[in-house]
């Protein structure tokens, strides 16, 4: 799975760019992204939650990876002045656990936990999959068959701004919609969850986005 063959490099799919903004609507600055927890933003569809993560002292690397729904791709490297900002679709590739306003079983564990065992990993409490956000979201342990899917960020050093520009996983996301259609309709209205995000997307700290975040 962790093959880095140059020949397998496949571009991510472009979607309409969306500037990340804070809860007050003002553009989010990269320096405002803390290292303690992930921030959540919707992209490329209104019903798809993504994690924005500041890896702190770590840099993120690109790899040639595979999704069983969507095939081969190369995850983008980290962005920002230190190359330590990454984003992933926050849906577990095992059995599609994802953060909702009531609870998030998926989180970025900046410090070690029972499941994470080392700091700086994404954990899914439901079945114990552990992913490495510095290495393309690849699985470290647990039942997940594939890495978490990446979201490509563009960084503008002139204003320290972040813009989501693309992702991989159209088939995976359509499967996500099928699995959760009723609850997505309840939250976003009929069809609302599959509206493309354009212009801006609001990033909120996971602890504010979800009422409960089990610390597995």
């Amino acid at each position: 799975m962790a093959c880095s063959l140059p020949g397998t490099a496949v571009a991510l799919q472009d979607f309409a760019p969306a500037r990340l903004v804070g809860e007050d609507g003002s553009p989010l600055k990269a320096t405002e992204v803390g290292t303690a927890e992930a921030m959540v933003f919707a992209y490329p569809y209104a019903g798809v939650p993504c994690f924005l993560i500041n890896l702190g002292a770590k840099r993120a690397h690109a790899h040639g990876l595979t999704s069983s729904d969507d095939g081969g791709y190369t995850n983008p490297p980290g962005v920002g002045r230190a190359g330590n900002l990454v984003a992933f679709v926050a849906i577990c590739t095992h059995q599609l656990t994802y953060p909702t306003p009531s609870i998030s079983y998926l989180r970025y564990a900046s410090t070690a936990s029972e499941l994470a065992t080392a700091p700086g990993r994404i954990v899914c409490c439901a079945h114990g999959s552990v992913f490495d956000p510095a290495e393309g979201g690849q699985k470290i342990s647990g039942p997940a068959p594939n890495p978490l899917l990446p979201v490509r960020l563009a960084y503008d050093p002139a204003n320290d701004g972040l813009t989501a520009t693309g992702t991989v996983g159209e088939k995976f996301l359509q499967r996500f919609f099928q699995n959760y259609k009723a609850e997505l309709i309840e939250r976003f209205g009929p069809g609302g969850y599959r509206q493309q995000v354009t212009g801006t997307t609001t990033a909120i700290a996971l602890g504010r986005y979800s009422r409960r975040v089990p610390a597995c």
Binding site: L115, C125, A126, H127, N179, R212, P214, C216
Partner: peptide, 27 residues
Amino acid sequence: AFLNRDTAKGLADLEWARGMYRDMFNA
């Protein structure tokens, strides 16, 4: 084995089951 009981695993128990239903009944 994770033998120290806690609420994180208590909540995860529910999602553990939901995940399996999704895996069997959905696309």
